[in-house]
Amino acid sequence: MKCILMVRIKSLIFISLFLPILVSAQKSLPTKSFDLGVGGASNQGTLSAAYIYDWSLGKKEKIIVGIGGRVTSYIGANQYYSTAPAKLTSGSTGPAVFFKENIIANIDTFLIAKPRVVAMNAMINLGYKVTQKISVGFNIDAIGFSVGYKTRGNYINGSQGQNVEAKPTVFNLLLVSDNDLGSLNSEFYGKYKLNETISLKAAFQFIFTEYTTEIPVQQFPEPNDRFRNKSSMFSAAVSFQLN
């Protein structure tokens, strides 16, 4: 398992380091932008700020590839978190977990009344310029860390339960499916350029937040202290082009 993890970490580092070099072969300089966004759904919401370098690729420079950093603050109320590790949810940890059904018997619930997570991650952006003013794309957090206060949550396992303290999982890493670690944000977005400086962005946002309990409250089929919440919401953002 550690081998697989290391290979993936190395792959992400490789992409992060060499993406700018690869795209720098293009004539155009990267576009720097700063996005401020807000997202919301029932009993939860996000505030996000991102600084992004985008390169335009292709003959007509319609393809957008970018990297950047994003801070996402997630606030929720009475949110259910589920057993996180892929080894428990899917029975294995390799890329094949993407195609595996969840093992319901291994998935327990951790209810948090007031989840608060601030995730700071390096992100990847991929887009396409539909017209001069309109672009669409997808971005996703890749690696980073999270902070947040300790809070109490209710571990519910059938008729047995425990109210214990938990805090946001510190290390975030994008892998495959439930192999992901920590809290990661992602968006499918459409962007409309108002003028040379300001664009408006509408997005469908997926955010995973993860808590680690102070003790491994789950014992079957093996001890576990990581619980993940998967939320979807609509978001809107203002994007400021800085060059």
Binding site: A41, F98, V176, S177, D178, D180, F206, F208, S232
Partner: peptide, 18 residues
Amino acid sequence: MKKNIILLFITAMISCKE
């Protein structure tokens, strides 16, 4: 993550709270 995104989208479309 992709599998989860698809599941989330479906859940968001059909879920309701009582």
